[in-house]
């Protein structure tokens, strides 16, 4: 919950609502990008960027190299698998 996971913004979902599609370990999901955009950096500028995703919210931009290393580490400790699983089954009864 507190570690977060790197993902790449691959599409914009709804610029008005600040929603984008992020690829996390091969799984795509909609995340909120309100915390990483402002006038200087509109949603359209986020395409292709790597971000740290916490519980469905992009919380900071990170460089691609950093993202790659973090994913490798999180995969090693089983954290990526757990997050992806949580995304897949989210909301199931």
């Amino acid at each position: 919950m507190c570690l977060g996971i790197p993902g790449q913004i691959v599409a914009l979902h709804d610029e008005q609502q600040k929603l984008a599609v992020v690829d996390v370990g091969g799984v795509r999901r909609t995340v909120n990008i309100a915390c990483i955009v402002d006038e200087q950096h509109p949603p359209s500028a986020c395409l292709g960027e790597w971000v740290l995703v916490h519980v469905g919210f992009a919380m900071s931009r990170i460089d691609p190299e950093e993202a790659r290393r973090t994913i490798a580490l999180l995969t090693e400790i089983g954290e990526v698998q757990a997050e992806v699983q949580a995304m897949r089954t989210s909301g199931d009864a």
Partner: peptide
Amino acid sequence: RMVYSPLDALKLARAHPGRDVIFFALG
């Protein structure tokens, strides 16, 4: 229900207008 994100709880609320969806928020 386990959710990955509070946004998913919101989604459940939209899908089930007749139910009360509560998110147990912590952190």
